[in-house]
């Protein structure tokens, strides 16, 4: 049987079913934020992260005059690690959980498109990640201020760029979760983070070997995997040195573009899937 071509004109109420409207995206984002921020597991992880940052006080006390440096080093590591854990594990289950528990049927029987669903979920989790990282970053900022006696803007800048890294990994993890299980998506998301820390170095190393094949392979990896180290200013924050902000801004724009592409792919894949 040939498909029936349908003919409701654009703007017709009949088309509302496809609802890619901002109000649907906003509703899903707000709902996702509310749901995830109330999750007890998230709270436990955040409290644990704050305890870890406090633990840096002890490390600082045994480091002979390097308290502030140790606090920033260890604290930013904790912010990155826990921010990553929170977002990757929630992002991996965000789409899968709704499919497995059939909540997508409730949503897609309403004027909600697949695109609005993916984008709304991403934005909602982005708000949660922003709240979590802002909480941890401000806590670290206050501790460093108390120890060093002066505020460190670089701690806040480093935290903001950790947020951009985490957002990139979140978008990729959501893309994985449209085709893979939650566990596999989380593992792949973490792998992308690790690869994103190494791809720049691997490319530099393979260039030293002057082997066309390995160099080409590392170029492919460099292009496919987001270059997360390019916006990593933790070392500069610890040493209170100013990074090349122009370069950081360019790489930040690249990561934003990467996020957009990853989400567009996630929407395209999810549109083709039957839930």
């Amino acid at each position: 049987m040939s498909p029936v071509v349908c003919c409701a004109p654009p703007g017709d109420p009949a088309r509302r079913r496809d609802g890619a409207g901002l109000s649907q995206v906003g509703a899903i984002a707000a709902n996702t934020f509310r749901e995830t921020i109330r999750d007890r597991v998230l709270m436990v992880i955040v409290v644990f992260a704050l305890v870890m940052i406090l633990g840096a006080l002890w490390l600082g006390s045994i480091s002979l005059g390097q308290e502030g440096r140790m606090m920033k080093d260890f604290g930013l590591l904790a912010v990155t690690g826990f921010g990553l854990i929170v977002t990757v594990f929630i992002a991996a289950s965000l789409v899968r959980k709704e499919v497995e528990k059939r909540t997508v049927f409730v949503l897609f029987s309403k004027p909600v498109s697949r695109g609005a669903f993916i984008v709304g979920k991403f934005l909602g989790l982005s708000l949660t990640a922003a709240a979590v990282l802002a909480g941890m970053g401000l806590f670290l900022f206050a501790l460093v201020w108390a120890i060093e006696g002066r505020p460190s803007g670089m701690v806040l800048a480093a935290t903001a760029l950790v947020y951009l890294q985490v957002e990139t990994v979140m978008a990729v993890t959501i893309l994985f979760s449209t085709v893979a299980s939650a566990i596999l998506s989380a593992v792949l998301g973490l792998c992308v983070f690790v690869a994103g820390q190494l791809s720049d170095n691997v490319l530099s190393l393979t260039r030293l070997g002057h082997n066309a094949v390995t160099e080409a392979a590392s170029w492919v990896v460099f292009v496919v995997v987001p270059n997360l180290t390019a916006v990593d200013v933790k070392a500069a924050a610890v040493g209170e040195q100013a990074p090349d902000w122009g370069s950081v801004a360019l790489w930040a724009a690249y990561l934003v573009a990467y996020i957009v592409v990853a989400l567009a792919l996630a929407v395209a894949v999810f549109r083709r899937r039957e839930v």
Binding site: R16, N31, K110
Partner: peptide, 30 residues
């Protein structure tokens, strides 16, 4: 339009950290 159709899936499972009022308000916003 399809916006005039209501649907209850089998064995529904909803957002556990939302209240009943919040969940319905969310659906209404959609």
């Amino acid at each position: 339009s399809l916006s005039r159709v209501g649907y209850l899936p089998e064995n529904p499972y909803f957002y556990e950290y939302l209240t009943g009022r919040e969940f319905l308000a969310f659906c209404a916003r959609l």
